[in-house]
Design a protein around this nucleic acid. Structure first.
Lengths: 104, 104
DNA sequence: CAAACATATAACTATGTAGTAATATGTTTG
DNA sequence: CAAACATATTACTACATAGTTATATGTTTG
């Protein structure tokens, strides 16, 4: 695999490799939500939430739609959902090791 | 989704969220390789390679087998391969955005 | 058994990025 | 149109972790 491919792939995984972003993603899985709703449900601060949303948006993992002064965010497609589902499959097998893993 | 679940999931994704580790994983996809072979093919330093292998091993994403003074590493199962394949699917759709993404 | 080899570990540095506090931008409403 | 509201941005700090150099551990072989 080419270095460029690997670099892109690493960037993609980094999008998912953060508790706050995963929390946000799980919150908007299925139904679009406004920033305020996401803030309420995740208990993340508003600026922090906005920053993570911007991050996910720029990578194309989510999309948004402005309605008046509110902005609705949703997961951008089934490929992204597929990633999260595949992660669950890995966790089903390896949650113990990952739980005990001290590297990060 | 519970905080614990999210924490585990983030740890899992962090395992994949690094160029060097992805490079190593792509190198041993299919056939087991020794550390030396991995070092040769990836051009990573030997200590760096060992550290990443230890990291992937502890998380259960790869496994190893010692044969004399050599240690062979291989991807631990089809769930892990599935993650990498699913990542390719996402990249097929979003490589442009991810390429242009400046967050990391 | 000493030397060469294969891998792992330790200590350290540098960098990337998550979080916060403060503020800016844009939108609705009374 | 001023005040309240919803979201985004900026500047900053703190921490996690990738990489390097040096060294340790364990294994084969002459």
């Amino acid at each position: 695999m080419s270095r460029n491919q690997v670099e892109l792939e690493a960037k993609l995984f980094k999008g998912f490799a953060d508790q706050s972003r995963l929390l946000i993603l799980s919150t908007i899985l299925g139904q679009p939500k406004t920033v305020s709703e996401i803030v309420d449900e995740t208990k993340l601060s508003q600026p922090n939430t906005s920053a993570h949303l911007a991050c996910l948006l720029e990578c194309g993992l989510i999309r948004n739609e402005k309605k008046g002064r509110e902005v609705f965010y949703e997961v951008s497609g089934k490929e992204v959902v597929g990633m999260l589902q595949q992660a669950q499959k890995v966790l089903k097998k390896h949650s113990k090791e990952i739980y005990e893993c001290t590297n990060y």
